[in-house]
Write a protein that binds this DNA or RNA. Structure first.
Length: 410
DNA sequence: TCTGGGGTCCTAGGACCC
DNA sequence: TCTGGGGTCCTAGGACCC
């Protein structure tokens, strides 16, 4: 169906988003540096979040350790990530985009899918013209340069946005016309196609597929024979630019998490538990702020040798109070430490299976004995008090004591 | 050079139920 | 006594993205 339907999808993707924001926030400092790196400090365990196009010319890439980036580009200036401002400006961009279509999906802090299907009456049939208008308005009102890609699927819009980037001598917009999809896909290496990562490329090479051209010669049945029903059919469509996924506006979070890498590895369990409680109360507060409750908690630990382990558990009823979340986090951490007691570089807590906090769950708690992790009215009142304090004084204003007495477990 | 922090989605095995 | 299939939930791990 989507081979000949008339979907018109844009992807607006910021150019070096974190770099742009850092420059807007500090025009006299970062704003004046051509060779700019945004990310963690080089003496700690920082990595590059984003680098200016000038710095990228030296081989600097995001996720690269900052120390290595500075070796490649010694003249660069490193500044921290202006998190709060990035979130604020990202929101401002979304609001502008919503003027052009009600169907805007925020795919990350700096990427927005816009479904323009059916807007021809408002903006005319020329997607390129509309995309130019959008770029102009976003730049004028937020100071942020964006590139925009367009096509008949989210996948094509995404790939087109890469082609639109200014460092490729483009004017910031690239639209794949209906009917040109296959020709456009031929321009790409397999690994450039979103969701075809290094592992999948390796697998494709093993079965003799080096590029899109070779893959296009196989029919769907051959793909299925090579890589299984699901993956085969998915890949067959993928290399043709076919992607039926819809632009979904206002998707709620599926999980919320906090994690941190320590300046130095930690071996002391009491110290780890203290850190764990700090992450736990922060993520619990985030869930409450979103008026959600979580059914599942997960504790993640990364050891000095980078081996990563995770332990999950599911509550009988969704929770958002500090008490059950901290207790269960401790139980999970102790389980992980029992399995392996080695120095730890990273600790994290994630809450998932989020439900809107409607209140009906608390009522269920009135019946029978309290079960594993079930929160009481008292827990909820306490957490509200904690939220009031952190609103005024931040997360350092109140800290949960390390000694949480775990309830008796069976 | 020594590897961040925030997410989404998929798989696979086992438990449990019908 | 043995043999099933399907569905759902849970846990753990991993690929992938920005």
């Amino acid at each position: 169906m989507d081979a000949f339907d008339s979907k018109r999808i844009l992807l607006a993707d910021a150019d070096a988003f974190f770099v742009s924001v850092a420059r807007l926030v500090d025009p006299e400092g970062a704003g004046r540096k051509k060779l700019l790196i945004v990310g963690g400090s080089p003496d700690g365990r920082g990595v590059v979040t984003s680098a200016s196009y000038e710095a990228r010319a030296y081989g600097v890439r995001s996720a690269m350790p900052t120390g290595k980036a500075l070796k490649l580009c010694p003249g660069a200036t490193v500044v921290g990530v202006p998190r709060k401002e990035c979130v604020e400006r990202s929101k401002a961009v979304r609001v502008i985009l919503q003027d052009f279509s009600p169907s805007v999906e925020q795919a990350s802090i700096d990427e927005f899918y816009i479904d323009m299907s059916g807007t021809e009456g408002l903006f005319g049939p020329d997607l390129k013209f509309t995309a130019d208008e959008i770029r102009k308005r976003v730049l004028e009102e937020t100071g942020l340069p964006f590139s925009i890609g367009g096509g008949t699927s989210k996948l094509l819009a995404k790939l087109a946005a890469q082609r639109a980037k200014p460092h490729l001598d483009n004017d910031g917009v690239y639209i794949v016309a209906p009917g040109d999809e296959i020709e456009f896909m031929r321009l790409h290496r397999l690994g450039e196609i979103p969701l075809i990562g290094p592992k999948f490329v390796e697998r494709l090479e093993k079965i003799g597929l080096q590029n899109v051209e070779q893959a296009l010669r196989l029919d769907a049945d051959a793909m299925v024979a090579l890589m299984g029903e699901r993956t085969g059919r998915w890949f067959y469509r993928r290399i043709r630019g076919l992607d039926a996924s819809r632009v979904r506006a206002g998707r709620p979070n599926k999980s919320l998490s906090h994690e941190g890498t320590f300046a130095r590895d930690i071996s002391n369990d009491a110290e780890l538990e203290k850190r764990l409680l700090a992450f736990s109360t922060r993520v619990a507060a985030d869930v409450r702020k979103k008026r959600m409750k979580a059914k599942t908690i997960s504790v993640k630990i990364r050891y000095h040798d980078f081996k990563t382990r995770q332990a999950n558990s599911t509550f009988t009823y969704p929770v958002s109070a500090d008490r059950p979340i901290c207790e269960e986090a401790l139980t999970l951490l102790r389980r992980l430490r029992k399995a392996r007691n080695a120095p730890v570089r990273l600790l994290g807590v994630s809450l998932s299976h989020l439900n809107p906090a409607t209140g009906e769950w608390q009522q269920l708690g009135l019946f029978g004995d309290p079960e594993k992790g079930m929160e009481t009215d008292h827990d909820i009142v306490l957490s509200k008090a904690v939220d009031n304090i952190t609103t005024k004084f931040g997360h350092k204003g109140i800290v949960r004591a390390t000694e949480v007495k775990p309830r008796e477990k069976d």
